[in-house]
């Protein structure tokens, strides 16, 4: 045996191992990716909601992508309250103007940002929502004020198709 042989042997084995590992990884990926949302879920349509029956102070809950969406027509008091809060007081500072483009309408995902329960309407210390699971209090803009939840309730993509119809998604 010459002196060079062991080196070449090492190289051969390392390459084989490395290439084998690449293959195992490539095979593992489809098995993992199959659990991700599939093409039909990704393509799921938007939901259109007729809000003509809502009066100020009322909330309806609709289903979008399997989650509840709160649509609330807010009273003037609620709007005033939401807009007067100072940013420093907020755990997750967001202006009400950014959350509700039309101040009368608040459209948000009705999912507590703590662990995903659905908060209750018109409850809590801030006249907004209260999550019964672990006691998070949200204000009239759906912003977190007290309790374990870290973030404000999420605002989905939505638009007014006409005065009476909101399209979510």
């Amino acid at each position: 045996m010459s002196d060079k042989k062991p080196e070449r042997r090492e190289f051969l084995f390392t390459t084989t191992y490395a290439l084998g590992a690449v293959g195992v990884g490539a095979v593992a990926w489809p098995m993992i990716d199959q659990m991700n949302p599939d093409a039909s879920v990704k393509a799921l349509a938007s939901t259109e909601v007729d809000v003509s029956s809502l009066t100020p102070g009322k909330t309806i809950t609709v289903l979008w992508r399997g989650k509840p969406v709160f649509i609330r027509k807010r009273t003037q008091d609620e709007i005033a309250e939401a807009r007067s809060v100072k940013m420093e007081e907020l755990k997750h500072p967001e202006k009400d103007e950014d959350r509700a483009k039309d101040p009368e309408w608040l459209v948000m995902l009705g999912v507590c940002t703590h662990l995903g329960c659905v908060p209750l309407n018109d409850r809590g210390d801030y006249n907004g929502w209260f999550c019964p699971c672990h006691g998070s209090h949200y204000d009239t803009s759906g912003r977190i004020r007290k309790g374990p939840a870290p973030l404000n309730m999420e605002i989905p993509k939505y638009e007014f198709v006409n005065a009476n119809t909101i399209k979510i998604g």
Binding site: P30, D38, S40
Partner: peptide, 13 residues
Amino acid sequence: EHIMRDVNYGWLI
């Protein structure tokens, strides 16, 4: 058919 068409790599599996 859902597996074959929509699930990620469903056809392969």
